[in-house]
């Protein structure tokens, strides 16, 4: 391998020695450049088509395989509607919690310098590198029967594991850094001169935030909210651990898909999936619009 590269490099030197004049004249518009360009675009398009577009097409085609009536039946099913409600509720809660956190944490880390800033940033990123299954597990080990808060919760009749609060908590955990990650680079790049000037002129915290910081970060905030919502709607691993799969109670849409699929009810599974695909496509469109506005 090393030898081969060495030889190509040598050949390059020799070849360029001869062709140097020609290359200097037009370094970027050679015929071979066009070939490489078309080849690369082709490979990338093919890769995206096979890896990303085909799976999407599979969902749509299979959902409608047994006709429109069967599709409607699967989608309007009582359990599906309940799962959709729970999914939306969970996503909205997770987005709200993480927006509050993201705004404060990004403000803190970008406008103030203090010891342990880097460590704090690393801690916020933890949920990003953790398996969703482990994210669910930590809540079982905290609030479940075996958990150290289990007895306390039982005595007070509070159910978190295998109930809606657990589903929400697990989703919040998994999506925790999303809003922060979008806001922090923007606020950091903006610097803190404007805020300092305002503070020296006597503005209070809320005025500074409303009039200076917020206008700078609004598009990034919206972008973070969209990403967070996308992940919250589709979270599977963490929720799957903690929900207990109670139909109509703690079943979110992705879990409902799994149940239907494991019952060999493939058409219904793909029909329910198609709801999630529609949501995903809407999110992608929203993302693109925000991207335009941001630019």
């Amino acid at each position: 391998m090393a030898q081969k590269r060495q030889r190509t490099y040598q050949q390059d030197i020799v070849g360029d020695g001869i062709l140097a004049v020609q290359k200097v004249r037009e370094p970027h518009t050679e015929a071979s450049g066009k070939g490489i360009r078309c080849g690369l675009i082709g490979i990338c398009a093919l890769f995206l088509f096979v890896m990303l577009v085909l799976p999407l097409a599979v969902v749509v085609i299979n959902a409608l395989r047994d006709g429109w009536a069967a599709y409607q039946e699967a989608v309007m099913d009582e359990y599906t509607v309940r799962a959709l409600q729970l999914t939306l509720f969970t996503a909205v809660t997770a987005v709200a919690v993480n927006t509050v956190f993201g705004v404060f944490a990004a403000f803190l880390l970008s406008k103030f310098y203090f010891r342990g800033r880097q460590i704090l940033a690393a801690l916020i990123d933890i949920p990003f590198s953790i398996s969703p299954v482990i994210a669910g597990l930590v809540f079982i080990l905290t609030f479940g029967n075996v958990g150290w808060m289990g007895d306390f919760l039982k005595a007070h009749g509070i159910r978190i594991v295998f109930a809606v609060p657990g589903v929400v908590l697990a989703t919040v955990f998994v999506t925790f850094p999303f809003v922060f990650r979008e806001l922090f680079p923007v606020l950091n790049a903006q610097g803190k001169d404007e805020e300092e000037a305002a503070a020296l002129m006597g503005a209070g915290w809320f005025t500074i935030f409303r009039k200076i910081t917020f206008p700078h970060m609004k598009w990034a905030l919206l972008y973070g909210v969209i990403l967070c919502a996308a992940r919250a709607l589709g979270e599977f691993g963490a929720v799957s651990v903690i929900s207990g799969h109670l139909r109509g109670k703690t079943n979110t849409l992705p879990l409902h898909v799994e149940i239907l699929y494991n019952e060999f009810n493939t058409t219904a599974a793909f029909a329910v999936s198609s709801i999630l695909v529609i949501l995903a496509v809407l999110i992608l469109i929203a993302r693109t619009i925000v991207e335009w506005k941001k630019a």
Binding site: A45, L52, P55, V58, N62, P254, V257, Y261, A280, L284
Partner: peptide, 20 residues
């Protein structure tokens, strides 16, 4: 193309799983 790349972030993993 740029938009499609984000698809795995937006598409729920369970859906991706069954369709793959």
């Amino acid at each position: 193309m740029d938009g499609i790349i984000e698809l795995p972030f937006a598409l729920p993993t369970a859906v991706a799983g069954i369709s793959l």
